[in-house]
C-alpha cells in the first residue's frame, strides 16, 4: 500500500507536485498517468525519499520510506533504467544492491533469470540497450521480493515481445497480492496494463478510477441526421443542448441518444440516423489532461471551430 497525502513539492517557484493525495492498493496494477512534466517522476522520488516534500507526506506500508528497516525487501523501484554505473556488469550491479540489504547473493541469479538477462549478466551495463536496461531495472526492483513495486515508464524502449512480457508480469505480481504502480504518459499503453488509473496534470490529481469509470466520465457524442433541420435547431435552442451543425448532420455532446430521440419524437421531428459514438480511453485521457499539458505542439484540433 502506498499512501500519498497532500503531497506538495516546489522547485523554486515551480509547483511540481500540488497537494496530491491518492492511495495505491495491493492486488491490482495501478497506472500512474499524466503528460510529460506532470510530476509523475517527482512524485515517485518523493515516495522514495529522494526528494523531500515541501509539505505533506508519502507512506509505504504505513511508514515513511526512510524508516524502513530493509527498504529493498519492502519497496522495489525502477526510476530510471540508465541510472547505474555504465562500467559495472549487470550481475555486479545487482550484487552490490543485494549485499546492501543483506539479501542472499543467490537471489541475483534468480532475478536475472526472471527478466531474461542471465546470458548477458557479465556484460557492462553501459552497453545494454534501453530495453535491456529496463529489464535490469526490473530485476533490481525484484531483488528483495518486495510487496510494493514502482516502475517509472518501464515500457519505454522495450520491443513488442518485451512489452507483452512486462504486462503479463506486472499482472502476475499484482495477482500475488503486491502493490504495483506503473507510470506512463501513454494511455494507449496503460489501458492494457493497468486496472486502476491515477491521472495527474501539472502536479494535481485530475481523476482516478477504473477503466469503466474513466470512460464514463468522458462524454460520448451523438450523431444525428434529420430532414427537418430547422425544427431540430429550434429544439436544440429550447433544450440548450451543446451541439454543432455539420454538412448533413448534427453532433451533440453530453446528451444521451434516447433523450434526444424522445424529444425529437415529441416535437414531431423525423430522424434518419441517431447514433452514439463511444470515446476511447485514450480520448478520455486526452480530454482530461488537455488543459494541463506542459508542452504543446501546433496542431489542428478536432472540434476547434466550435
Amino acid at each position: 500500500m502506498i499512501e500519498v497525502q497532500q503531497l506538495t513539492k516546489k522547485f523554486g517557484d515551480t509547483l511540481a507536485v500540488d497537494d496530491l493525495s491518492f492511495t495505491v492498493k495491493p492486488g491490482i496494477v495501478t497506472g500512474f498517468l499524466g503528460p510529460n512534466g506532470s510530476g509523475k517522476s517527482t512524485t515517485m522520488r518523493l515516495i522514495l525519499g529522494l526528494n523531500s516534500p515541501t509539505s505533506g507526506q508519502a507512506l509505504v506500508n504505513g511508514k515513511r520510506f526512510a524508516e524502513l528497516d530493509s527498504p529493498l525487501r519492502e519497496v522495489g523501484a525502477l526510476l530510471d533504467a540508465k541510472a547505474l554505473h555504465p562500467g559495472r556488469s549487470a550481475r555486479n550491479h545487482l550484487r552490490s544492491l543485494a549485499i546492501s540489504n543483506r539479501i542472499p547473493v543467490t537471489r541475483v541469479d534468480e532475478v536475472l533469470d526472471i527478466v531474461g538477462l542471465s546470458e548477458v549478466a557479465n556484460r557492462r551495463a553501459g552497453d545494454f540497450s534501453l530495453g535491456m536496461s529496463q529489464r535490469l531495472g526490473i530485476a533490481a526492483a525484484l531483488l528483495g521480493d518486495p510487496s510494493i513495486l514502482m516502475f517509472d515508464e518501464p515500457i519505454n524502449g522495450l520491443d513488442p515481445e518485451g512489452i507483452r512480457w512486462v504486462r503479463d508480469f506486472f499482472q502476475q505480481l499484482a495477482d500475488e497480492g503486491r502493490t504495483v504502480l506503473v507510470s506512463s504518459h501513454l494511455m494507449s499503453e496503460m489501458a492494457l496494463t493497468a486496472e486502476h488509473f491515477i491521472i495527474i496534470g501539472r502536479g494535481k490529481l485530475i481523476t482516478e478510477g477504473t477503466k469503466e469509470e474513466l470512460a464514463k466520465s468522458a462524454v460520448g457524442t451523438v450523431h444525428l441526421r434529420t430532414p427537418n433541420r430547422e425544427l431540430f435547431k429550434d429544439l436544440i435552442a429550447t433544450k440548450q443542448w451543446e451541439a454543432r451543425e455539420e454538412a448533413d448532420s448534427f453532433v451533440l455532446e453530453g446528451v444521451p441518444a434516447n433523450t434526444i430521440g424522445d424529444e425529437a419524437f415529441a416535437a414531431g421531428i423525423v430522424l434518419h440516423e441517431l447514433s452514439t459514438r463511444e470515446v476511447s480511453l485514450e480520448d478520455a485521457f486526452m480530454a482530461l489532461t488537455e488543459s494541463s499539458v506542459e508542452y504543446t505542439g501546433r496542431r489542428n484540433r478536432k472540434g476547434a471551430q466550435k
Binding site: G49, L72, D80, A83
Partner: peptide, 18 residues
C-alpha cells in the same frame, strides 16, 4: 560524482535511504 552524474545515487539511496 560518478553516482551523481549517472543518476545511480538514486538507486543507491533507494536501497540504503540513510
Amino acid at each position: 560524482t560518478s553516482e551523481f552524474v549517472s543518476g545511480s545515487i538514486r538507486t543507491t539511496l533507494a536501497a540504503v535511504p540513510s
